[in-house]
Amino acid sequence: MNASPTTPSVTEAAQDKVMKHTCDHHAQCMKVIQAILDDEATDAEKEHFRVNMDKCIPCIESYRLEKCIKDSLNQKIAKKPCPESILNTILSKINS
């Protein structure tokens, strides 16, 4: 799989380190991965994740998989505007 220019990658210095094969906080990492992919992560979360990716194989693999899925879905889904009549119906039901 080819990494995009925005994909965090393992640095050369990190390649010399011992990589973790298990992640003790994978659920938290997945939340940060989703926030990063949705452009909702804070700078602190992004930096923490970059540091973590330098040593955690499961997080690297999860990030790449989630990014691939998101990119594939974005290419397949046709974005169409909602018809005005449907929008008005939804808004009226919300406001009532």
Results as ranks from 00 to 15, higher is better:
K31I: 08
D38P: 05
F49P: 08
L37P: 04
E47A: 02
H21G: 14
H25P: 06
E40T: 03
R50A: 14
S85H: 11
M19A: 12
N2S: 15
K31D: 15
K93Q: 11
V10H: 03
I86Q: 09
P8F: 03
V51K: 08
Q28L: 03
D43F: 02
S72D: 13
I94A: 14
C56V: 06
P83Y: 06
K20M: 13
C59H: 00
C82L: 14
P8N: 01
V51Y: 00
A14S: 13
L37T: 05
D71Y: 04
Q34G: 08
S92W: 05
P83F: 01
A78K: 12
A78Q: 10
L73M: 13
Q34D: 15
V10T: 10
T89G: 08
A78W: 04
A41I: 05
K76W: 01
S92D: 09
K76A: 11
K93P: 00
N95P: 05
A27D: 12
A14C: 09
D43A: 08
I90D: 07
D24V: 09
S96G: 15
D54N: 10
R64S: 05
A35S: 12
V18I: 12
P8V: 00
K20H: 14
K55W: 00
M30D: 11
K20D: 14
N74W: 03
S85F: 14
D54P: 01
A27Q: 13
P5R: 01
M1W: 01
L73T: 04
K55G: 11
A13K: 09
A44M: 08
K79S: 12
Q34K: 15
C56N: 00
N2M: 03
K80M: 10
C82V: 08
K76H: 04
N95S: 13
I36V: 14
V18L: 13
D16Q: 13
N52W: 04
C29T: 06
Q34T: 07
E66T: 02
I60T: 12
I86L: 12
I69C: 05
L37C: 13
D71V: 09
C23P: 06
D38F: 03
K70D: 12
I57S: 00
I36W: 05
S92G: 04
T7Y: 01
V10D: 02
S4H: 02
K17E: 03
T42Q: 00
I94M: 06
